[in-house]
């Protein structure tokens, strides 16, 4: 049963900045369908008595005290940036505030 449409694949691909070649969306949609069909097996398991959870670990309230630790040196922080000026990362202009 096809659930995911090529249009949905295109939309998600765009959001994830993934470029798909012509016809690839159709192919990927079918693959995603197969993955979802596999996951759907979980629906056969009775879960009425199980609390919903957002996390698999039996842990809660893990915090750290509000203490500073040394940061990276600016030179180190921008070392991986593809483009820079001084210690600023240079990127294509994003908002035209005119």
């Amino acid at each position: 049963m096809a659930v995911v449409t090529p249009a949905e694949v295109q939309a998600v691909a765009f959001l994830a900045r993934v470029q798909l070649a012509d016809g690839q969306a159709q192919h990927v949609a079918a693959q995603v369908d197969q993955v979802l069909a596999y996951v759907r097996k979980l629906q056969a398991i009775p879960t009425q008595s199980i609390e919903p959870t957002s996390h698999v670990l039996p842990l809660a309230n893990v915090t750290r005290p509000d203490q500073t630790v040394p940061s990276l040196a600016p030179e180190e922080a921008v070392r991986l940036a593809p483009d820079r000026r001084g210690h600023l990362v240079r990127v294509p202009k994003v908002v035209d505030l005119s």
């Binding site: 990362v89 240079r90 908002v95």
Partner: peptide, 8 residues
Amino acid sequence: EPFSYVDF
């Protein structure tokens, strides 16, 4: 300039 600069 056709660029923006980022300070994190």
